[in-house]
Design a protein around this nucleic acid. Sequence first.
DNA 1: CGAGTACTTGACTGTGGTCAAAGCCAGTGG
DNA 2: CCACTGGCTTTGACCACAGTCAAGTACTCG
Lengths: 240, 240
Amino acid sequence: MMFDRLLTKLRARDEVSVTEAQALAGALERERDYPAQHVIIHENEPLTFSTLLMEGICCRYKDLGEGQRQITALHIHGDFVDLHSFTLKRLDHNVMALTRCHVGIFPHSRLQTLTEQQPHLTRLLWLSTTIDAALHREWELSLGRRNAIEKIAHLFCELYMRLELVGLAEDLRFGFPLTQAVIGECTGLTTVHVNRTLGQLRGDGLLRLDRRGVTILDWPGLVRIAEFNPNYLYLTREPR
Amino acid sequence: MMFDRLLTKLRARDEVSVTEAQALAGALERERDYPAQHVIIHENEPLTFSTLLMEGICCRYKDLGEGQRQITALHIHGDFVDLHSFTLKRLDHNVMALTRCHVGIFPHSRLQTLTEQQPHLTRLLWLSTTIDAALHREWELSLGRRNAIEKIAHLFCELYMRLELVGLAEDLRFGFPLTQAVIGECTGLTTVHVNRTLGQLRGDGLLRLDRRGVTILDWPGLVRIAEFNPNYLYLTREPR
DNA sequence: CGAGTACTTGACTGTGGTCAAAGCCAGTGG
DNA sequence: CCACTGGCTTTGACCACAGTCAAGTACTCG
């Protein structure tokens, strides 16, 4: 069923009982589709539900004057794109579909009932928001300190690990329907410079990127350039 | 008592009953002091408690090769510096005291009891971690898209608002015991460039910075340069 | 086959980095 | 009381990574 990828992600970090999985499924009110480029959540709009991404890719982004924007996170199948709206009630950023997206709607009222009856499941949901924050921190590091080639290498390392976890990447290959402009908006670079840097990665035999997707040709090399350390993804279960 | 500033912050966002305040106080195990420059929490170290900053200034930072580091957040009196370790159990970053610090220790076991008995208080704690994440996102925007003068102007706007909320700033003045090197580590700039940019802000009559602290001379001007919008601090209570 | 979007390339520019040295205090000790 | 020390700030000269502007190419879709 459609929860599989969410459960895969949660179970990578902690136990989820059958009862809990059912309780979570019961909090789903309905499903929806959005076309690419659709703004799913608007900054500051009062929210009464959270959105689970079941198919497609979304981004969180913040606008700045003159059409500039910064993407602060990418979301893939199985991510809650705005679980934090359960506590915040409105968001400081927009959420946009970068591809066609299929999502599930979880009313805050039902989540609130869950939090009153299922403390362990509540901690798991809380955990997914704190993992989001860990990704934000790693992106701060990239944006503040890494140069162009390191930023882009790091982004691809992160995406591979995340996609692989939910079964959407294997053998160092994954589909990549995003444009170079989007990579620039994630990394704080211009499209032109993203293009040149991708050329460099290609020239150095590290990866190939075409419309069919990304093929990482030299994973250790990419990891070395990016100083990639997957700690921040919290992919191992911690003793509890 | 020492919780005042934490309560002030929580109450800026939602009701906190007397019972809840007492329950929270009951979760405090002991207090501690740290000298300036002391690393309070080490990356990847297993954690069994969370730390409330009661006095002083701390930063969260991530290391990169060759002594480079990026500060991903600043914390002031009344902030939990690592409440997210309650769900994560180890952190992807370090926490360091930037000044002499006095902190309170909250064992995860006691927090867990709280989360099992106090759903509303649990949501409040969850909320403070999601507000942390909102600050991370705003810093991503600064790091990715703002230029030097905008970055530094934005940092001072943010600090003023946060310090003012807990009574540590007023009349556009606040104590500022941090060095220009630290400002650089927050904004992704070098110390040299921070110094030049501060000179520019001073020259344009926007603020004064000396060892006694910061005086903002032109708040609207600073806000305009930074495109500062305090939405992301979530300082108003949302309807619930 | 034409239009539109994304990608690619080149020439030039500029913001911010690097390297180096000097100035300024506050604290310490003779 | 003054010289010394060490951290922090300030300034200057030069450099480079990434941005800007502009044109051209390659796909995809209608």
